[in-house]
């Protein structure tokens, strides 16, 4: 049987090591998402060791018949972001990667989800306020998939004034008259607007005091409109533990 090798670029957004030493990876590139298997990929050294989570790689592979998994034969590392394994960065990188995975499909004509994931991961690697970077890019990714909440007007009566609720099921902000959903201060509603519609650059200038609230909105919105993200369920255990647990033990 002739082997037809192909080459594709992308970011490794999921990596599962099987007990027999194989690695199954999900790779998101400009043209969409695909899955590959590296036989004995856990064996360190050799170029399959570069098949690491969040790495930006060029992969040579081939497909046998109808098999869903491409067989990965070569991996070339184009870039690894050194800070992503830091405790104050790592949980957020997982959120962006898991969300990009949930939002992307096999064929992605525009490549916007890949672009936003790539710049989101770079932002996490560079910026001091990684929590804010993660919130900003999570909403950007959601918007790129066409699933942004409606934040310009009340989802029920279309007024643009006195927006002070977030209606998860309704898919956006609500007003004082309609009173549906999670009650917010008007300032918090304006913050939601900024996170969803503002540029990343201006969002990163925000102070954003009520972050737990914003995570709650994101978490519940995605759970309803996309799917529940495991990395969001876990978030507080990871971030709070390293901030507070050690002193309590």
């Amino acid at each position: 049987m002739s082997r037809r090798y192909r080459v594709r670029d992308g970011i490794i957004i999921r990596r599962n090591a099987l007990p027999n030493g194989d690695i199954v990876a999900t790779i998101l590139g400009e043209k969409g998402k695909w899955h590959g298997i590296a036989r004995k990929g856990k064996i360190p050294g050799g170029n399959l060791g570069r098949l690491s989570l969040f790495h930006d790689v060029t992969i040579q592979y081939y497909r046998r018949g109808e098999e869903a998994l491409a067989l990965i034969t070569q991996v070339q590392l184009n870039g690894a972001l050194s800070r992503l394994s830091q405790p104050d960065v790592y949980p957020y990188a997982h959120i962006l990667a898991e969300l990009a995975d949930a939002l992307s499909v096999e064929v992605e004509p525009g490549g916007q989800i890949y672009d936003y994931l790539a710049s989101g991961l770079r932002g996490l690697n560079q910026h001091r306020d990684t929590e804010l970077v993660a919130l900003a890019y999570a909403w950007k990714l959601t918007a790129q998939a066409g699933l942004a909440p409606q934040v310009a007007t009340c989802t029920h009566c279309k007024t643009t004034s006195q927006l002070a609720f977030f209606d998860i099921a309704g898919g956006g902000l609500g007003c004082q008259q309609c009173r549906v959903g999670l009650p917010l201060l008007e300032r918090q509603a304006a913050e939601v607007q900024q996170l969803v519609r503002g540029s990343v650059r201006t969002t990163l200038d925000m102070r954003l005091p009520d972050r737990a609230l914003h995570w709650r909105i994101l978490h519940r919105y995605l759970a309803y409109h996309v799917r529940p993200l495991k990395s969001l369920i876990n978030l507080s255990s990871l971030t709070e533990t390293y901030k507070g647990e050690a002193s309590r033990v």
Partner: peptide, 20 residues
């Protein structure tokens, strides 16, 4: 391990243990 996940786990533990 020397994977991203292994490094992250080591860093996380290092911070906890350092606090202690």
């Amino acid at each position: 391990s020397t994977t991203v996940e292994g490094e992250a786990t080591a860093m996380y533990l290092a911070r906890l243990l350092n606090d202690l």
